[in-house]
């Protein structure tokens, strides 16, 4: 093997240091497989051809980042590590944040996570190297690169990509309210709601799942968050929450979730409850039952 090593330089543009700490673990703990790649950490940005950038880009870092970018020699590849680097994540809309970094440099690979697992950071670097190889051969960055590193698993409880069970979601917007990084948006449509989780803004904290009254939103242990730049805005979980038609009056209504009903009707037999009618009709039915 005589190919020269890939020269990696890391830039922290204002991260909480989680990604940088985990980068160190990725670089020096053998099980994360970096040692199997032909990578070398360099001291000068001039020599580097693989940039790893973390953080949401603070205003003070901006001019220095630009200066460092101007010293790079082509071809080079850029890997953004951590949700902040992709969308500024939880720090977005602060007076001191000028990112995300792709405003100033062409990013090739994004590694979402808060912080990402070292396994994901390693995968991101592997994909960055792949992009660099293609660039050196004068080829374009592909639309998709398949998983490169294999054999990684996550524990059952790992808080990975969020998912939604549409059938028990009532679009109550609790998740939207408690999400610290505006990663969830619920939009009203004609016949219901659309529930979107944008994985590249998510800080994987599990707050939404913890506070969800019905258990509809939950974290999976899927840590496949290493994506190419062209997937930045489409890496979504979309849930469609439909309204039901009341069997009594024909109006559209949001059916109550079994979770909420269980809380509200502790002493009654839930099975007897007619769930196919709207709350207005149920009120009338109850009134008739009791007083008529």
């Amino acid at each position: 093997m005589s190919t020269p090593p890939v020269k990696l330089f890391r830039i922290n543009t204002g991260s909480c240091n989680g990604c940088d700490v985990e980068f160190v673990a990725t670089a020096f703990v053998d099980k994360f497989q970096i040692s199997s790649m032909n990578v070398e950490l360099v001291e000068n940005v001039e020599e580097s051809n693989l940039l790893v950038i973390t953080g949401p880009l603070t205003s003070k870092s901006e001019s220095f980042l630009k200066k460092y970018i101007s010293k790079l020699k082509k071809p080079y590849a850029v890997v953004g590590v951590g949700t902040c680097s992709i969308s500024c994540g939880i720090f977005r809309d602060s007076y001191s944040i000028n990112g995300p970094i792709d405003k100033f440099i062409d990013v090739n690979v994004n590694v979402a996570g808060c912080p990402p697992r070292p396994e994901s950071i390693a995968e991101g670097i592997a994909k960055g190297i792949k992009v660099l190889e293609l660039k050196s051969e004068g080829e374009e960055t592909p639309q998709k690169i398949e998983q490169i590193l294999i054999g990684f698993e996550a524990p059952k409880k790992f808080r990975g990509r969020m998912s939604l069970n549409e059938t028990i979601c009532t679009a109550c917007r609790t998740c939207e309210t408690v999400c610290p990084s505006t990663a969830i948006k619920i939009t009203k449509t004609q016949n219901g709601f659309i529930h979107n989780i944008w994985h590249n803004s998510c800080c994987y904290c599990g707050n939404c799942a913890f506070f969800c009254p019905t258990g509809a939103i939950y974290s999976t242990n899927n840590f496949d968050t290493v994506k190419l730049q062209n997937e930045k805005f489409s890496d979504l979980n979309t849930g469609i929450i439909n309204l039901s038609t009341c069997s009594s009056c024909g109006e559209s209504y949001m059916p109550p979730s079994s979770g909420l009903l269980g809380k509200a009707y502790i002493h009654n037999n839930l099975k007897k409850l007619n769930k196919s009618i709207c709350s207005k009709c149920r009120k009338e039915e109850n009134f008739k039952r009791m007083y008529a």
């Binding site: 500024c88 977005r92 948006k185 659309i194 979107n196 944008w198 805005f233 979504l236």
Partner: peptide, 17 residues
């Protein structure tokens, strides 16, 4: 307009139903 609005308008264009 906030950065959140700008980014989410791009996200919403990608929603596939």
């Amino acid at each position: 307009v906030s950065d959140t609005d700008i980014l989410w308008s791009k996200v919403k264009k990608e929603v596939k139903l």
